[in-house]
Design a protein around this nucleic acid. Structure first.
Length: 169
DNA sequence: ACCCCGATCGTA
DNA sequence: ACGATCGGGGTT
């Protein structure tokens, strides 16, 4: 069963935790989400939308359930899903994926994940709730997880908004 | 127009 | 610990 709009139209911290264990499908690839981070609104200094709307971050201001993919460090892309209500800029960064198809492999890191799947800015702004080859399945969530500070940021490093699922053997 | 730096990763 | 590599966004 595909995750619908209402899954993403919730507080970002809830969505970030609830995404752990869900299955991401992108064309021939599928895997379990194992690690996420929340970026929440203009009061979160680490959020790309902290200083308002720009061409890059405008998808974050739109409706929930869309992909937000940006280019970083001159060589990597990062995948996010937009959350909360239209007009409120927030998203969940996907940092880890336990790939099941076409091979078993752990994609640990947002840049490595996008590089393996072939995700680029061309896939920015896709509606995950209606797309035929880019969506999420409601496989059982990983209820065991730890919360830590977000990785690679300076501002907002005090907030424990990174969630790492404990994979059950 | 310019310049600094970043939600990273691989190697040292 | 650090360099690669370049787009974005704030500043001039």
């Amino acid at each position: 069963m595909k995750l619908g709009r209402n899954f993403f139209e919730r507080p970002t911290l809830e969505v970030a935790k609830d995404l752990l264990g869900r299955t991401l499908v992108f064309h021939e690839f599928s895997g379990l989400i194992t690690e996420t981070e929340a970026y929440i609104g203009q009061d979160d200094p680490a959020c790309h939308a902290a200083r308002g709307r720009t061409p890059r971050n405008e998808i974050m201001f739109g409706p929930a359930g869309y992909s937000y993919i940006y280019f970083i460090y001159g060589m990597y892309h990062c995948l996010n899903f937009v959350t909360e209500s239209e007009g409120f800029p927030a998203a969940v960064l996907i940092r880890g994926l336990k790939l099941c198809e076409p091979e078993n492999r752990l994609l640990d890191g947002p840049g490595k994940l996008c590089r393996y799947l072939g995700l680029t800015r061309e896939h920015n702004g896709q509606d995950l709730t209606t797309c035929e080859n880019f969506y999420l399945l409601n496989t059982p969530p990983l209820t065991e997880f730890s919360a830590t500070a977000r990785i690679g940021i300076k501002q907002g490093a005090d907030k424990p908004w990174r969630f790492v699922g404990k994979l059950v053997p």
